[in-house]
Structure formats: C-alpha cells, structure tokens
Amino acid sequence: MTFSPQLEARFDKLLKSYPPGRQRSAMIPMLLYGQDEVGCVSGELIDEVARRVGVTPLQVNEVLSYYSMLHRQPLGKYHVQICTNISCLLHDGDKLWERACRKLGIGHKQVTADGCISLEEVECIGACSWAPAVQVNYDFHHFVKPEELDRLLDSLREKP
C-alpha cells in the first residue's frame, strides 16, 4: 500500500517513538492518520498497519472497534460533528443537531447522497465554554448560532 511522502514520514517517526519492541503503540495513531488520507480504515489499511507494527490484522480489528473516531466506512468529505453534551445542551446544542439533520435530510453517522457531508452527534469535544460547538473534520466552530450553522453547511457544499 502506498501513502503520501508526508504520511510515510509520519509513520516512520511514529515507529521510532516507542521503546524497542513496543511498536504496537504506533497502531492507533497510524490508523487515525491513515484514515485521514485513505478516507476510512479500509481492510487494506488494517493489513498494512498490522504488518508495520508487527501484529495480526485481527488484533488491529479488535482495537479499532473500540475507538469512536475510527471508521470502517467512508464518511463525507466534510464530517460535521455537533456536540449535544451537557454544556452545549444548555446552549441548545440539541436543537442545532436537529436543525442539521432536517437541513441535510440525513441522521447520525449518515452521509449525503453526493458524499459531501456526513453528520455525527458527538460527545464532549472540549469546547464547553464556547458552546454550542461544532467540529468540521478537525476545525472547531464556537458559539454557533442556528443561522451560522446553515451558512456553514452551505459553504461546505460550495467548497472545492
């Protein structure tokens, strides 16, 4: 399996970051960074990571099913994560979530037909003092008002 030179460099660095014989430690970071490039944790990625860290694909599978950010199926190009946990809830994060579902016509962990946007109702993302908060891929959006959410979703459709 071939990756971009940047990702290869990152993988090399990760494999050297842990004590001798502890390369398995690199597995979860490699899966997450790999997913960012490949689009999901594909069977091929599992085999490749298993080979590089020296475990079986089954062992990788066992671990990855635990972590909520690792996905076996591709998400939208823009993965919109809306927090509805307590601090965001107190600022109507739940209503923001329902609004996004209505606007896009999709629900939790679903992808729009054009593959552009996926939605996820997420647990606390660490933006509690600037609630309600939304994360698009890795970018944070704070103090999101309903009309701002609409504009944000529209802008993702128009992005190249």
Partner: peptide
C-alpha cells in the same frame, strides 16, 4: 518527548486505560 494521539474514547482519560491505549490496545 513525543506526542501520541488518541482516537475518540473518554475512558482513555482514566490513567490506566490511557496507558493501555498508549500501548496500542483497547482503553
């Protein structure tokens, strides 16, 4: 000194689960 990324799990903020996760296992 190295950074190490988690991948979505509240439980990994618990010290012993964090160490399991750091070792490439379920938290």
């Amino acid at each position: 000194l190295y950074t190490h990324t988690g991948a979505g799990a509240y439980e990994c903020g618990e010290e012993s689960a964090l160490l399991e996760s750091l070792e490439g296992k379920r938290g």
